[in-house]
Simulated assay, not measured.
Amino acid sequence: MNNNNLFTKPHYPILDGLRGIAAIIVVTFHLSEPLSTGNLDNLVNHGYLAVDFFFLLSGFVIGYAYDDRWHKMTLGSFLKRRVERLHPLVILGMTLGAIGFYFTDSAIWPLIHTVPLWKLLLVMLIGYTILPVPLALDIRGWEEMHPLNSVGWSLFFEYIANILYATIVRKFSNKALAVFVFIAAVALAHFAITSPKGDVSGGWTLNAEHMRIGITRTIYPFFAGLLLSRVAKLTRIRNAFTWCSILVATVLYMPRIGGAEHLWLNGVYESVCIIFVFPLIVYLGASGIVSTKTERKLCKFLGDISYPLYLVHYPFVYFYVAWISNNKGVTILQAWPYALLILCGSIVLAYVALKWYDEPVRKWLRKKLG
């Protein structure tokens, strides 16, 4: 989900900015969820597709950064770089979730205060590894593989994609990779269109159904991004950040397609977005020209906070969900000031976490891991 270690290679600031835009929309999606009855009437209806966009961005950046360096890089050094980049904020997010666990008192989590401290610490320590916890350790009751920080599921699949890339897929020729990506696209479209829910939402529970969803959502976008990094002939496009930001927001804020009567239509919409629209956005963003200092600074700021924001916001969403569940009938007009406060507070915390924690820890890890 992040680009680093590119050394002398040209940077893609617009892709950084787009990652930040998508991260902010993810927060608004999570803040709108408790005010809806499900995916059919969520105000930020397709916000969960931001994860699929992240996977595609990640595959593009990984391919761009590492594809031509395997002659001087080992599997171990690659994995060390990914752990150094991804894991400090995983640990911070799980710690924040653990600290706030007993304070999210709500009728929807009646068993929280019966969870012994040893079990909370065990779940936190397992969370530090990003390995999923079994349902027997689901201390919150939402059947999440990371009950202290819900978004950890996507990092679990991110690591799987990175390992597949480093051990197998990086050796594929472009033709073999294209065939692999085509098969993954067919599997994704088939799942989305035939899904009982009419969407690709899922992947956060340690069971066969959600593992299938998570793998299906990860394989196509990540390796489509890798293929795009190999074959794309970039041009020079002006105002790309503006147009790409509008495209990302349009896709993620699009209301439900087809309603409850024609669920398959929404599956078609999501398939088209993931298979065609997201690669187009990444291509346009990689081709884009940053024309002003203000735009460059904005893209840098959005890129800097994107990953921290994604990892630190959900512990605060738990408090928000508890408040809404304890005050039945809360309207959007009543909730939006609190939602805005959480959004702004999460952005501030993300920046503080970046500067005071993530960057110093990563610098220390680089020295320790070599």
Rank of each mutant, 00 (worst) to 15 (best):
I347A: 09
L79H: 06
K9I: 06
L43P: 07
Y283F: 07
T242V: 15
L354S: 03
I324Q: 06
H210R: 06
M94K: 04
R362K: 12
A208E: 13
G127L: 11
V290F: 03
L111K: 11
A260V: 05
I342W: 01
H146M: 10
D138A: 01
F276E: 02
K363A: 15
S291Q: 13
H190K: 15
S346W: 01
L177D: 04
A185I: 01
I342S: 05
L35F: 10
V317E: 09
N39D: 15
T205L: 00
P360E: 13
E209V: 06
V115H: 12
D304I: 04
W142M: 13
L333V: 10
Y283C: 02
P34N: 09
W243R: 15
T218H: 04
L111W: 12
V61G: 02
L206Y: 06
F278K: 05
T194S: 14
K233Q: 13
H313K: 05
V27A: 05
I342Y: 00
A184Q: 07
V151W: 01
L122H: 09
F78W: 04
G203Y: 01
F223M: 00
L309W: 03
Y320F: 04
A161I: 01
L226W: 00
P116Q: 11
G202Y: 05
K80R: 08
V51G: 11
T331Y: 03
G225P: 00
F241Y: 14
K363Q: 15
R366V: 13
P315Y: 04
H71L: 12
T114S: 14
G258I: 11
L135E: 14
F222P: 02
H313R: 11
L298R: 05
L164K: 01
A176M: 12
A184L: 06
K297D: 15
T216N: 13
W356E: 14
P116C: 01
R296A: 15
K300C: 10
V123N: 11
H210D: 14
R19M: 09
W336P: 07
G225V: 00
F53Y: 10
L341S: 13
C244G: 12
P221F: 04
E84I: 13
E84M: 14
R85M: 11
V312Q: 08
L75D: 11
G345N: 10
A107Q: 12
L365C: 10
Y66C: 02
Y307T: 08
P315N: 12
H71Y: 01
W70P: 01
I274W: 01
N39G: 15
V186N: 05
A161W: 00
G100Y: 01
P279N: 06
M94P: 11
T104D: 10
L18G: 12
K233I: 13
